[in-house]
Design a protein around this nucleic acid. Structure first.
Lengths: 332, 332
DNA sequence: GCTTATCACTAAACCGGTTTATCGAACTAA
DNA sequence: TTAGTTCGATAAACCGGTTTAGTGATAAGC
């Protein structure tokens, strides 16, 4: 029952391991190995159900055929859908996918990246929790293939797949304005990241364009590490405030889901007085009250691009710069 | 910028690679390496930011410190939550997690398992799409560490983590009966798997216990590979049938979600006339109409157990048999 | 004074592949 | 006949770690 190696196959077929390696890698003809020998080797390999040891192959080739997928939370369907498609595309290219969750913890993210590099993982696709590119860059290094998505860092000169944050925020805000709302709150995670800033600017500019004054008291920022409590406070402020903001724009789906839950369990009487808009879609938005207008990110496209761009870097050292995809607004 | 290896460190520190290996693995004292030499090696390693090549280590040790997680669909939150927790527990034990989706395709599952074995992945945790244990067993083999969950196969003598299917089905059915329903439909995926059969039996026995005749026309089976169309047909039958079944028990969350969607988009007029019960919880059940009574599986516990039992097998060759966890019913 | 331990360290084999350089034999061309 | 090719195959180095068996020097035991 002991594992069968290329040496054993060579021995059993009465040839050298070099020959076996050539034949099993389909380079038999190219390397002028006779048909008879090739058949012999293939027969022996089949008979013993030989499967090459990928680890040994990786060590020799200096390539692990593995890509890392690092996200704050794989159980968030937004990341789950991307993970699924990434795995599908990667598999077609002969890659496997290693996943890890950062839980928005920068230290954990750092450890994961170092662990992935030590494991000789060929490249990573990540939605980083980091706020500081220099710090992150010192860990990733200049030559390690990496594709960023969802979160963009200032001064980052890495491949990035993003969405039209500014326009989407504008559109979502516009729709709320069209519905007649004058008091539109904004709930964001605390962040100095460009994509969040863009979203905030889109919101502000949409208000300005409609001659609605931007009210600083209606803009809320929540710590990403304690969203539950943050949302509770914000919702209570919005509801109990002197002037109820009866519509709210949330900058990601976690915030929105938590807000819906809070409203339904703590303030059900306000359920029908509110209208929500949100970045990222969730299935539950189809049924929840308050109903949500959401901006769906093209997760399949993100995944396809991410894998292709990463493989480009791995294979050709090509640095593909940024791509900006479009969201689609789902009104309900 | 060329990668730094143990040989380089040895050279730079003026010692042999053996000594370096001992020291960097914390076995310096045990191996009687002088403090001076140890410090020297550590200093050099630190200076060059040396990180051991995990691939080489794996080859040498015959262990990859990687576990495989194979599920039908990682974007299903049920699996997503388990994936998240598995990664968290595995990471603490020094393991990384490779994920793959089968899309309920047995052939794909077979390929994944073989690929994972070739990659020397130390063991797998899987919700198998297979219906035939002999077939699956011939691929996994007798000695490859593996933990099954969610799906159980007849005659399987592998470690399995399941739930109390029979009792849960009984409880869900009972609740519907208590609500006054006499016509309770059952929607299942086609399957001869014990866990599905147990659920069906639980349903039947609950009906019998309440002196309600089991109506074969109210039991529907849907192909797992084409759930969308299947659900459409079933819902139309349930609604248009001579005798409307105004409550339905679904045997997993995919079926339920699809049914809710179908009702809401195609037959919204029936929304309030129906009551659903479902295995597996989903966030959207909190808000959807028809409202759903659901049986939540303890995903963290499943994940914890799965990793621990798998590591048991990897480390000690221990075959832990089956475990049956309890669901918690969420009424709404 | 001789044997035996202990100390500090290392040479070399091994894990299982890939790849380069080379080799003898047969065949071809001049 | 001789030199050059082609054919079929291989020895050996290499990837970067771990581990076994052993080495020389010094200290301890009797």
């Amino acid at each position: 029952m002991t594992k069968i190696s290329i040496n054993k196959i060579a021995e059993l077929a009465g040839v050298s391991k070099t020959t076996v390696s050539f034949v099993l890698n389909g380079r038999g003809d190219e390397k002028n190995i006779s048909q008879k020998t090739q058949e012999k080797i293939l027969a022996v390999a089949r008979e013993h159900n030989y499967k090459a040891n990928f680890i040994a192959r990786s060590l020799s080739l200096g390539k692990s055929f593995t890509i890392g997928f690092i996200v704050p939370d794989i159980s968030n369907p937004f990341f789950g859908k991307i993970a699924k498609q990434i795995e599908a595309v990667a598999e077609k290219k002969g890659y496997s996918v290693m996943v890890a969750n950062t839980n928005e913890d920068i230290l954990k993210e750092t450890n994961i990246i170092e662990s992935f590099k030590a494991r000789q993982i060929d490249g990573i696709i990540l939605a980083s929790a980091s706020k500081n590119y220099n710090q992150l860059s010192s860990i990733i290094g200049n030559s390690y293939p990496s594709v960023f998505f969802d979160r963009f860092l200032p001064e980052m000169n890495k491949t990035f797949i993003g969405i039209n944050n500014y326009e989407t925020a504008q559109q979502l805000t516009d729709i709320l304005i069209q519905k007649g709302y004058k008091k539109i709150a904004l709930v964001s995670i605390t962040s100095y990241l460009p994509n969040i800033i863009d979203r905030i600017n889109g919101y502000k500019d949409a208000l300005k364009a409609a001659k609605i004054e931007v009210d600083r008291d209606l803009i809320f920022e929540i710590e990403p590490t304690n969203i539950k409590d943050g949302i509770k406070k914000v919702i209570s402020k919005i509801i109990k405030g002197e002037q109820l903001a009866s519509s709210v724009l949330f900058l990601n789906n976690v915030l929105t889901a938590e807000a819906i839950w809070t409203i339904n369990t703590m303030y059900p009487e306000y359920k029908d007085q509110l209208d929500f808009a949100s970045f990222d879609n969730l299935d539950l938005f189809d049924y929840s009250t308050p109903r949500v207008i959401s901006a769906l990110q093209p997760s399949e496209e993100i995944a396809n691009l991410a894998v292709n761009m990463l493989c480009d870097q791995i294979d050709n050292n090509t640095q593909n710069k940024g791509v900006q995809l479009k969201t689609s607004i789902i009104t309900r």
